[in-house]
């Protein structure tokens, strides 16, 4: 029989053995276990989003014919606007191609647009991420940029068979090369200022000294297209204040992000057509 003192410490001994076994366990086994455990829970994660879709479907069916006709008229107007936008887009693309050929420039990276429903949002002080309802089955790749009507949403960090995880622009782990609209000099953006009762914000570093921004006169921050997967010119947020950094060589400041990031239900994944370009 074991001595009483040893018997009392047995829970900690068991914990120590588990910890040692875990530390010496191969990375392959850990990765496989993680993927397996995620996939086991994936149906649970997406289930409520499917239920929500069903609820929306049935609530839409309750609308009267008059309401549907009115909505149809509004949509017809939007379609006419978008048709004009598509035509303009085609002309601009042709112009870009002509200039690329004329100046012998390398082509801009091309993407396939993959719309995806948001299954689960998980926003805390530690991380900010969401699970979307498309994964390997739609060719989503790790690192793909994710956008919405208001600009950058984040970047795909994990891809599973039917789902993918997106690290949000508001997350402290999210970094991006950005630039002030109308200025080509790159600066560094990082997310992470997520108060409970304030809109999400990020920070910018290495801002040139001749750039000024205040709450009354904010500057538009866009992706620079440098050193990353994001194409240039996508909206990030508004720089609302800038102050000299501690070394005095640059400025640092805060970026106000889109409030809608916290209630997104649909996003678009930009799947690179030639991943080797990145």
């Amino acid at each position: 029989m074991l001595p009483k003192r040893f018997d009392q410490a047995r829970p900690f001994l068991t914990l120590g053995i588990i910890l040692a076994l875990w530390l010496f366990l191969s990375l392959v086994v850990k990765t496989f276990t993680r993927v397996t455990f995620f996939e086991i829970q994936a149906p649970m994660v997406v289930a409520d989003s499917y239920v929500q879709d069903l609820q929306t479907f049935w609530s839409n069916r309750l609308h009267s014919k008059d309401e549907l006709l009115k909505a149809g008229r509004q949509i017809a107007g939007l379609i006419a606007d978008y048709d004009f936008g598509v035509q303009q887009n085609k002309n601009l693309r042709a112009e870009i191609l002509r200039l690329e050929n004329l100046l012998n420039l390398p082509p801009l990276p091309t993407f396939r647009f993959e719309p995806a429903r948001v299954a689960r949002r998980d926003f805390s002080g530690w991380w900010q991420r969401m699970v979307i309802r498309k994964g390997k089955n739609y060719g989503i790749t790790v690192g793909s940029p994710v956008v919405f009507a208001g600009g950058v949403v984040g970047r795909v960090t994990e891809v599973y068979q039917y789902t993918a995880v997106v690290d949000l622009i508001t997350s402290p782990t999210f970094r991006l090369a950005a630039s002030v609209a109308g200025d080509s000099r790159p600066l560094s953006y990082q997310g992470g200022l997520n108060d409970s009762f304030l809109s999400p914000r990020g920070t910018v570093e290495f801002v040139p000294l001749d750039i000024f921004a205040t709450k009354a006169l904010p500057r538009h921050l866009v992706t620079s297209g440098l050193g990353g997967v994001f194409p240039p010119g996508i909206a990030v947020g508004e720089i609302t204040n800038l102050e000299p950094s501690s070394d005095g060589l640059f400025k640092t400041g805060e970026v106000a992000l889109d409030e809608r990031l916290g209630s997104l239900t649909e996003v678009t994944v930009l799947v690179p057509l030639n991943p080797e370009e990145f």
């Binding site: 829970p11 588990i18 993927v35 995620f38 829970q41």
Partner: peptide, 28 residues
Amino acid sequence: GLMTDALEPVPFGTGMILLGAVYATLLY
């Protein structure tokens, strides 16, 4: 612990070890 770790962006096994530490203390 492993189930929760699979869904969180922490090193895999962190939740398991933390829950294990609490559990061992309570068992003690």
